[in-house]
Computed example of a mutant assay.
Amino acid sequence: MRAEDDASYREFARAKAMSLRRLAYLLCADWHLAEDLTQTALIKMYRAWPKVHRKNTVDNYARQVLLRCWLDERRKPWRTVENRDGQVPDQPGTDLDPALAGSATGTRDLLLRALTEIPPRQRAAVVLRYWADLSITDAAITLRCSEGTVKSQAARGLDALRAVVERLGVEYVPVAGRSV
């Protein structure tokens, strides 16, 4: 790779690593896995950087690679036998981990828990549309599907989120006109 391509990749990685990690966390609900997914996505981006950088589709490509890494990780055999019941034997103090301290509000915890219970494609559509604030067209490009599929997956995902929230015993309240 040429020196200027390498420098531009390093600048991109420094600027976008944290936002990619947050997006990965919303998809997988595990900070450690989110870090691994981000690193894997950045490695894959490095390999294709000269071609991607010239086309000026870097942000969308990064989200697409991250989404594919997450879907690939879910297909691995050890992920299918893991049983996540949501019960952690020891609860650390929230003052020790900045991620836990930031999630002290019940609404945020409830939403993150509900996100983990909806199907992966619906979760991806909801996260890309409402958290990453992508347009339907950009989300369709990232998910490699039609715009109609994004609309239906997002709508079904929102319905599933509402059902999970109701099942958890908390009343669903829309925030400032948004569905999520």
Results as ranks from 00 to 15, higher is better:
residue 100 L to V: 09
residue 66 L to P: 01
residue 24 A to F: 03
residue 19 S to Q: 14
residue 68 R to V: 11
residue 30 D to M: 00
residue 30 D to N: 13
residue 48 A to W: 04
residue 171 E to T: 15
residue 44 K to V: 05
residue 99 A to Y: 13
residue 146 S to C: 02
residue 1 M to L: 12
residue 145 C to Y: 03
residue 22 R to A: 07
residue 32 H to Q: 12
residue 176 A to E: 14
residue 161 L to Q: 04
residue 31 W to F: 08
residue 44 K to A: 11
residue 139 A to T: 07
residue 123 R to W: 08
residue 61 Y to N: 08
residue 101 A to V: 02
residue 166 E to K: 09
residue 117 E to F: 04
residue 169 G to E: 10
residue 20 L to N: 03
residue 158 L to G: 04
residue 41 A to F: 01
residue 117 E to C: 08
residue 147 E to K: 14
residue 100 L to P: 01
residue 75 R to H: 13
residue 23 L to A: 12
residue 159 D to R: 10
residue 3 A to Y: 09
residue 28 C to K: 05
residue 31 W to T: 09
residue 23 L to H: 11
residue 33 L to W: 12
residue 56 N to G: 03
residue 123 R to N: 08
residue 71 L to D: 07
residue 33 L to E: 14
residue 148 G to M: 10
residue 71 L to E: 13
residue 44 K to N: 14
residue 111 L to H: 07
residue 1 M to V: 15
residue 145 C to D: 09
residue 153 Q to G: 00
residue 16 K to R: 15
residue 129 R to W: 03
residue 144 R to T: 14
residue 169 G to P: 06
residue 114 A to C: 07
residue 79 R to Y: 11
residue 116 T to C: 03
residue 46 Y to P: 00
residue 11 E to D: 15
residue 148 G to S: 10
residue 12 F to S: 06
residue 102 G to Y: 11
residue 98 P to A: 11
residue 103 S to Q: 13
residue 140 A to M: 02
residue 176 A to C: 07
residue 47 R to G: 10
residue 123 R to Y: 05
residue 165 V to N: 00
residue 101 A to G: 13
residue 46 Y to L: 13
residue 84 R to W: 13
residue 37 L to C: 06
residue 68 R to I: 14
residue 146 S to K: 03
residue 94 T to F: 05
residue 150 V to T: 05
residue 9 Y to L: 09
residue 88 V to A: 04
residue 108 R to S: 10
residue 7 A to F: 07
residue 126 V to H: 01
residue 54 R to Q: 09
residue 129 R to M: 14
residue 165 V to S: 04
residue 75 R to K: 12
residue 22 R to H: 09
residue 73 E to C: 06
residue 70 W to F: 10
residue 125 A to D: 08
residue 71 L to A: 07
residue 173 V to I: 14
residue 123 R to M: 06
residue 136 I to F: 02
residue 180 V to Y: 10
residue 128 L to R: 04
residue 23 L to M: 14
residue 161 L to R: 00
residue 78 W to V: 15
residue 119 P to L: 09
residue 139 A to Y: 09
residue 28 C to T: 15
residue 101 A to M: 12
residue 17 A to P: 05
residue 132 A to H: 01
residue 26 L to F: 15
residue 113 R to G: 11
residue 7 A to P: 02
residue 136 I to N: 08
residue 136 I to R: 04
residue 65 V to S: 07
residue 31 W to D: 10
residue 132 A to G: 02
residue 121 R to T: 15
residue 26 L to M: 08
